[in-house]
Nucleic acid binder design. Sequence first.
RNA 1: UCCGGAGUAGCUCAGUGGUAGAGCGAUCGGCUGUUAACCGAUUGGUCGUAGGUUCGAGUCCUACCUCCGGAGCCA
Length: 477
Amino acid sequence: MRGLLNPRAMSKEATRIVEVLRGAQPVGAEVVIEGWVRTRRDSKAGLSFVNVHDGSCFDAIQVVAASDLAEYEEVVLALGAGCAVRVRGSVVPSQGKGQSVELKALAIELVGDVESPETYPMQPKRHSMEYLREVGHLRPRTNVIGAVTRVRHTLSQAVHRFFHERGFYWIHTPIITASDAEGAGQMFRVSTLDLANLPRTKDGAVDFDQDFFGKESFLTVSGQLNVETYCCALSKVYTFGPTFRAENSNTRRHLAEFWMIEPEIAFADLADDVALAEDFLKSIFRALLDERDDDLRFFASFVDKECITRLEKLVESDFERMSYTEAVERLQKSGKKFEFEPRWGADLQSEHERYLTEEVVGRPIAVLDYPKDIKAFYMRQNDDGKTVAAMDVLAPGIGEIIGGSQREERLDRLDARIDEMGLPKDHYDWYRDLRRYGTVPHAGFGLGFERAILYATGMENIRDVIPFPRAPRQIDF
RNA sequence: UCCGGAGUAGCUCAGUGGUAGAGCGAUCGGCUGUUAACCGAUUGGUCGUAGGUUCGAGUCCUACCUCCGGAGCCA
């Protein structure tokens, strides 16, 4: 504990608050903590209570500063919400309720003052999520965004750990792409052309030959087609990266920039794919239950009281499997009045999905073999001539959480679909090559990472589970 | 993009044609081993913007902007 006796040398020895609160530092130990003040309360008994958080865990630590500290008048009594401080103190059992240990201050240093407390946007009170979005640079200091951030991190780590432990390789698929016909929504254009003075070809079209890549280029809407190439070489692969959609979607479950997880497995069929999805969801949510109990208890108390039991139930229950055809029949026979009547050949509506998973089976369900006409060109055609080997995993409380399929590995069948759907075959030459050279049955799925976080936390708006939300007319911070 | 709702003090909201309010915050004081403390005082607003109706508009009308919810699209 070299240097601790000199307040000016405190920073190199700082201890994370979580270690103090969890007892990693024994009672009597002298530690330095660094963080931001949440609240200060003064007692006429000659001491002040300063709550300090550093993001290392949900809780703040209570610093007890006695009035005989040299800097009491000048520093301690000037502390307020948001001040950055460094505190040297000894770990002591708390005399009050609400915490088992606290820090008896030996020295307090004001590292960064709050210039004008009356304009500091983070008041010591509950704020609306809408307001917090307007102060996106300061909202990480709140309980709720801090908790979301730690949950997000833990789930990210669990994703990578899950795949790594099972022999999957993480493939960094490209962010910029020239594939303009993946059929997954509007794309953002990437260009270095001068918008005010676009080069033209002889027939008046924009001359993309003069653009940076010499072709029309976009931000990716999915890494799937790219990751399939690595799947057909390294067998088990996945992507986990940003994805972009230029749809004008103004809802609480859409972002223009979000993170997607897409595993792809070779020598595998749809049943293998569903089994992987089930293992995957159970694994990452079990990790969350194990590692972020403090934050989950916060969500259960203040955001969604069902969130922990929902996770526990998902982790423990076996997923139901049901064909799309049977699902439609069950919906039609349910007698329940839906806004949209369930009909074979139409996609399942949100209300249908929730009814199936919440009321018909009461646990997660994988719906299999959808009509080919409502699914993408690359999905494997079933022998019935009507359906493809697609699957959606539906979960209580949210509906669709995963969508995937076995891929069409037969070149003639793939080409037939490309032609039927009027897609430009030349764009898919490299994708078709995978079917010409050592083709293999393979399958995969996609999971919107932010939607998984919504599910785990009970947060309502997807803009609050990503650090910097990008959505139509929203790109601040 | 379509449908619905909402923009009033730093924040959350009340105010339904006649002199702009409360709680919280902030500031000051009191009290207390305190827990987003408690008690008192002070501070605080071109009522989203632009037009219009009216003797008079926060309130009624029109347009626009922004946000929220639902739908569509999807992850």
